[in-house]
């Protein structure tokens, strides 16, 4: 494991201590050997574009560390964030297996490491290891589930405060582990800017700013940099269900 600027680079998938927690990487050693021989590891700064919407498929990216947003642009030029990919996810899968253009742009939200596998190598890898096939199916199942969730939430959420409350509650499912924790408060790490939150819920940055300000005024949340605290979860839940 190499290190640079406190960023740990994982060169060898076989020695990666994180792989058991990952959606895709926890493969049998024989498949990991094959993966090691076909992947190219690279580290990307925040804001790097891994692939562009509409670009012919070159290959897939396995996100080792960091997070990346998947976004698409509508015919009207509106940017919409489809989802945020977590470490261990495979990106560009749909385009590579169906040999169609990438359907979303993938941009890193923080310094990230990704393993790139070319289209030809990946298809061969998929066809020769059933464990890889299972993982690919799991990843696509996860992606479909996320997309259906998003469609369902479109039908449910009508107001912007409701949508933002829903987003905060979904982040609260994975609270930040802090040494000093105030009882009843849920700390979360938010790496999305207000502009990105606006792209996520389909509104303007100004409306997001106003809504968050309103939540703070009501004592439902507080923020300090990228750390936010949800102080009144029941109030947010009530807003979502009403």
């Amino acid at each position: 494991m190499g290190t640079s600027f406190n960023f740990h680079i994982i060169e060898d998938c076989l020695k990666c201590s994180l792989r058991e927690d990952r959606l895709f990487c926890n493969l049998p050693s024989e498949a990991l050997d094959a993966l090691q021989s076909i992947k190219a590891t690279a580290v990307y700064p925040k804001g790097a574009m891994l692939c562009l919407e509409g670009q012919p498929p070159r290959g897939i990216f396995i996100l080792c560390t960091g997070r990346a947003k998947l976004f698409t642009t509508s015919a009207e030029g509106k940017t919409m964030i489809l989802r945020v990919a977590e470490p261990g996810e495979v990106l560009g899968l749909t385009a590579v297996v169906s040999n169609t253009a990438y359907e979303a742009t993938v941009e890193t939200m923080e310094p990230s490491q990704a393993n790139f596998i070319s289209q030809a190598h990946f298809i061969q890898f998929l066809q020769s290891h059933s464990a890889v096939g299972v993982k690919v199916a799991q990843q696509l199942t996860h992606n479909c589930h996320c997309a259906y969730e998003e469609i369902r939430s479109l039908a449910l959420s009508n107001s912007v405060p409701e949508k933002i409350a829903k987003l905060l509650l979904s982040w609260a499912e994975h609270p930040l582990m802090m040494q000093k924790q105030v009882s009843g408060e849920i700390p979360i790490r938010v790496t999305l800017t207000q502009e990105e939150i606006a792209q996520f819920v389909g509104t303007s940055r100004e409306t997001v700013s106003r809504t968050l300000g309103d939540f703070k005024k009501k004592g439902w949340m507080r923020t300090k940099g990228a750390t936010w605290w949800i102080m009144n979860r029941p109030a947010l839940e009530k807003l979502v269900t009403t």
């Binding site: 297996v97 298809i123 020769s128 059933s130 890889v132 096939g133 299972v134 199916a137 696509l140």
Partner: peptide
């Protein structure tokens, strides 16, 4: 296992 390629395309 080669069927998984078709499975991935369908999904």
């Amino acid at each position: 296992p080669q069927i998984y390629f078709a499975v991935a395309r369908i999904m």
